[in-house]
Amino acid sequence: MTSLPTTTGKKLGLVIDLDTCVGCQACVTNCKEWNTSGHMAPLTDLNAYGAGADGVWFNRVHTYEVAGHEGCGASASRTMHFPRSCLHCEKPECVTVCPTGASYKRASDGIVLVNEDLCIGCKLCSWACPYGAREFDVFEGVMKKCTLCVDRIYNENLAEEDRVPACVLTCPTSARHFGDLGDPNSDVSKLVASRGGVDLMPEMGYQPVNKYLPPRSRKDTASSMPAPELKPADTANGLLGWVDRLLSR
């Protein structure tokens, strides 16, 4: 049903650190790698090796030049890498606009999913998402989206430490964190509180579960760490002194 649950048991989601993300695209790659054979498989690619390549991806990393933000410090601007994927909103209108009931938000953990067998491919959900999180699979004729790796996080065939979304598991700078954002005592909730985590486009009223940590404020100058001054070698004593005296004759 496309009616939203009044509350969800958990609010599973991601916390993404824009201060430490280096834009390496590893999360994008591992997302594609896992999900092209996962719950929403396949993530179809068309003309993958030619001109006009097109395909379904759940995660896209943009790069921006940011100016006028405290994260820039004394510099005029800074570079910021920005991963963009489904935010598993509390008020996901991508779900409520769905005419068939294919889109739904799980009451147990808040994950927003698509039932591909019910999807008629009308694309209205992708219009209703302010964040561009949903991508249509023209080959399969159905809408696809991030599953928060629902087939990893509960997967008892995986080692417990691997039961996190593929993007989180693979991030080399630990810029991505996964957990229950509905629990104020969870690690991710504490991280959001300590770093001042924010919603994307809060004015849209979708109440995203995923939070972003803005770039931290920079110090204006690097701290001073001078090297010791260079002094001439001691030529008064020792072997070096004898050699010096010998050659000075």
Binding site: M1, T2, S3, L4, V95, T96, V97, C98, P99, T100, G101, A102, L118, I120, C122, L124
Partner: peptide
């Protein structure tokens, strides 16, 4: 199937 979700859609 599009006739089913009149409550929200």
């Amino acid at each position: 199937r599009a006739f089913s979700q009149w409550r929200t859609s």
